[in-house]
């Protein structure tokens, strides 16, 4: 308990100090400083683990920079001149029925079709891996959101969405046939 009460603030300090090095390296365009900073941030995990345990320590080490970076961001804060009098013209909202239909269709694809396609691929990949049941489940749980994200990104970033969707659907059908037939 005593060691933890010393090591936890030390881990915070190490992370904060590391962020400082990253900041100074960034400001001076010095890659060595930045690399040293990242090394310090990474090494804070070595203080977090004895302070809070392996599992909690890893979580704190991962999330702490999000809180501790703000003094450096605020130090770098600047003000840009406001352009008084530059008011954008106000217009009534313009609704195009065709555009609404296209967007609604894409929303259905993104929210329903692509997660389903990613689900089929996830199950297929998970069950091909040489691991036991619980690990298959864990890999599947990790894989599904990333595959969904990949599918969604490829679909939305594509200039030929319908073609991409058809190719994806065909691939999924093949996988489904392999698994279910």
């Amino acid at each position: 308990m005593f060691i933890a009460s010393i090591l936890a603030p030390f881990a915070v300090f190490l992370c904060f100090f590391g962020l400082g090095w990253v900041y100074w390296g960034w400001k001076a365009s010095n890659r060595v400083s930045s690399a040293l900073g990242w090394a310090l941030i990474t090494s804070s995990v070595l203080a977090w683990i004895p302070a809070a345990g392996l599992q909690y320590g890893l979580v704190y080490a991962l999330f702490a920079p999000a809180l501790l970076v703000w003094p450096y961001v605020s130090r770098e804060a600047s003000r840009i001149p406001s352009r008084a009098g530059q008011q954008r013209p106000r217009e009534a909202s313009q609704w195009s029925v065709a555009q609404v239909i296209v967007n609604a269709g894409a929303a259905v694809v993104v929210a329903l079709v692509l997660p389903l396609m990613a689900g089929v691929l996830t199950v297929f990949v998970s069950f091909q891996l040489p691991v036991a049941g619980a690990s298959q489940a864990a890999i599947g749980i990790l894989l599904l959101p990333f595959l969904t994200a990949l599918y969604v990104f490829l679909y939305l970033a594509s200039r030929r969405r319908m073609q991409w969707l058809l190719v994806g659907a065909a691939g999924t059908s093949v996988l489904a046939a392999v698994m279910y037939l």
Partner: peptide, 9 residues
């Protein structure tokens, strides 16, 4: 990475 510009519109 550390930039924060206030003001403008």
């Amino acid at each position: 990475a550390f930039r924060f510009r206030r003001g403008g519109n």
